[in-house]
Design a protein around this nucleic acid. Structure first.
Lengths: 125, 125
DNA sequence: TAATTATTGCGAATAAATCGCATTTACATG
DNA sequence: CATGTAAATGCGATTTATTCGCAATAATTA
């Protein structure tokens, strides 16, 4: 299953890069200029996640958010990091704060999902 | 809106106390002996959350889980703590591991939701 | 015992995410 | 440059979690 380059994929990725935050399917559909089918957006996002281009965060609203996380190249962010979900502007940003914990090795940890939520600095005025 | 004591509420709470873990509506409905309507279970759970009898965790599967968190009286657990979701037995347990972070006070943090997931110690054999 | 109103059951409604299938399109190859 | 193959897309239907409206039931208090 080789990947092909399409205007749709480019547009989604560009939007996410430009926003610098994690966005939901809904937010993407709202902000993107071209008309892209809902199911297609999900498929594009899922493929990007498989290819490690995006990462997926599930917030306490139960919805999925997707982020390029440009800053993941940072040391702090290369591992697991906290996310902040602003309930006002409905975006999630990657925080440069590492998630640290130590747990018995009888547990096998496959995934880490840490989301703080509230009002972000841009909306708190 | 005063609360009334009903067999339904008792049964749900007893089950959660006995299990000692966080359970989804689905798991509750499966394990509870009496017949309780789906919508009612949700309402009972939501009311318990309002009354701080239960707390709600949203896992990366996007579903809600509810826990009595008996150990919340512990010092470590009285604040925010990590949760562990086992993908095999579909339960979530409160871990005695505090969530620690320091964030600019230009962010207003209202909620913390941290879930590790993988295989729990009981299922990892 | 009766009155008040919280609680429940039932069915429909919402909403996120996925799926099947026919159609379109990217792209490698001749 | 034409063309075949499979990836990608659009559309509509489906699945699943959660909530809602409303009528019926039941807990509590007087």
């Amino acid at each position: 299953m080789e990947r092909r380059n399409t205007p749709t994929k480019q547009a989604v990725l560009e939007l996410l890069v430009k926003s610098g935050k994690a966005m939901s399917r809904e937010a993407i559909e709202k902000e993107i200029t071209q008309n892209i089918n809902r199911a297609t957006i999900y498929r594009v996002l899922n493929r990007f996640c498989e290819d490690d281009v995006l990462h997926r965060i599930v917030a306490e609203d139960g919805k999925q958010y997707f982020a390029v996380c440009v800053n993941c190249y940072d040391k702090v962010l290369s591992g697991h990091h906290f996310h902040f979900r602003c309930v006002k502007c409905d975006t999630i940003e990657c925080l440069p704060i590492a998630v640290e914990f130590s747990i018995s090795n009888s547990y096998q940890v496959d995934n880490v999902n840490c989301v703080l939520s509230g009002t972000c600095k841009d909306c708190s005025v």
